[in-house]
Amino acid sequence: MVLTLVQSAPSPSAAPLLDVRALSLGFGTSKTRLLDGVRYSVEAGETLCIVGESGCGKSVSSLAIMGLLPQGAAHIHEADIRFRGERYDLNDMAALRRHRGADIAMIFQEPMTSLNPAFKVGDQIAEAVTAHNDVSEAQARDRAVEMLRRVRIPAPEARMNEYPHQLSGGMRQRVMIAMALANDPALLIADEPTTALDVTIQSQILDLIRDLQAETGMGTIMITHDLGVVAEIADNVAVMYAGTIVEAGPADAIFNDPQHPYTIGLMSSMPRLTGPRERLTTVPGTVPTVETMPAGCRFSTRCPFAQPVCAETPPQREFGRGHRALCHFAPLDDRLERSA
């Protein structure tokens, strides 16, 4: 029994693959931080899902890590990030470029933004290989065919010679994945890779990502706004609201024991596939903008539990196994009572 305990506990010295300890940034001259103290980590072989609604900063946070934010536009207030235990400097553009596409790869929300319509898909994958490896053109093309086969594209040799527009949405997303994985990255960041796809195609792509992850042992950050996708593939979840991670933890804790009022509101808002068809409990109002961002808890303008103290920065409350929530009143069932 002691043995199993020792085996299953992660060894304390093993550093996470990517450890974002604090990331805060803003755009232009605005004093409000668009991302404020964003914190998450992902281990090798594990999937972290970042979930949140449109505009909350999911893409910006991953673009920042990839060094792909528009130069000069973003002002980074703090960035304490480790990759494989080593300092990862967002200002060192040369280092970021070396990581990009080699040990950290990204799949984007819209495949057509990263596939060049003028080139054959085979050439584009081969190009991704030669960019980071000292290999011959023939070797790179062999690798490209192999990658197309690995993402389960039928007749890969023939597909090599097609242009992106000749492929369906699902096929393009497979090509994107093939390109991202061509150099065996340690970390894959996938930004809404299935949002534009139909459900039957989405489930094919999610299966593919899961299989490839099992084959390669890479760590994956999956960005999505779909809690269904999260339940399907996440080991760990970070819930993002208006540029902050309001709750994070193991997937089962987030789904079965959510703590933050926003997480609870989001789950209540979702129409369900089973059970009674009741009126939906919603999250009232709309997300604040950078201009109308409240002080203290960023959810306070929409939270049905908000009290005057919520205008102060909420504490990070811990619930074990890395499960944490940013709320003055978590756990709600202990700290609040009905007033009428």
Binding site: V199, T200, Q202, S203, L206, D226, L227, G228, V229, V230, A231, E232, A251, D252, I254, F255, N256, M267, M270, L273
Partner: peptide, 10 residues
Amino acid sequence: LLSAIPVAEH
């Protein structure tokens, strides 16, 4: 179609 929908339940 019904079986392809990811269900938001752990």
